[in-house]
């Protein structure tokens, strides 16, 4: 019997395939139930007009009890958006990925939240502690204990 996480992920995948992703979000790769990739862009008026980012979701076997590890992919074809809650290594400081995570959320709900986080951005800048964080950041953003300040996203 497949684990709870893979059964739930299969359902989410079926849903995405049947109904499609929300606007501006595309599923790039979901070959297994451990890592999924999405492309994400902000539609309409925003500071990120014309920019396309790549999101990586990593699931452990306790999903959805435990939150997915979500980050922007840095690579030759992708960069992290310049945003006060996004570190230059792609890690995202968002409370719904940490202590505000709930199993009622889903992969596409997280995508939509991050999309609106980008859309509502007023100034393109890195977090103030970016350099310090990036120097010591763990590989998996879930191992970071972010201090969420300002609006919870």
């Amino acid at each position: 019997m497949a684990s709870i996480s893979s059964r739930r992920l299969r359902k989410e995948l079926n849903e995405i395939n049947a109904e499609g992703c929300p606007c501006g979000i595309k599923l790039l790769n979901a070959d297994n139930f451990e890592v999924w990739y999405f492309s994400i862009e902000v539609l309409g008026e925003s500071l990120y007009q014309g920019e396309v980012f790549k999101l990586m979701f990593r699931f452990d076997s306790n999903y959805p009890i435990s939150s997915p590890a979500v980050q922007f992919v840095i690579g030759p074809d992708a960069q992290a958006p310049i945003h006060p809650h996004v570190y230059s290594n792609g890690h995202i400081c968002a409370s719904i990925l940490g202590n505000e995570w709930s199993p009622v959320l889903s992969v596409s709900a997280v995508c939509v939240t991050l999309q609106s986080m980008l859309a509502s951005c007023k100034t393109k800048e890195r977090p103030v502690d970016n350099d310090r964080y990036v120097r010591h950041a763990p590989e998996n953003p879930k191992k970071t204990r972010f201090h969420y300040d300002g609006e919870s996203v």
Partner: peptide, 11 residues
């Protein structure tokens, strides 16, 4: 309820 959907495991 006709259909019950678990919000956690989505079954």
């Amino acid at each position: 309820l006709k259909v019950k959907l678990c919000y956690i495991c989505r079954e």
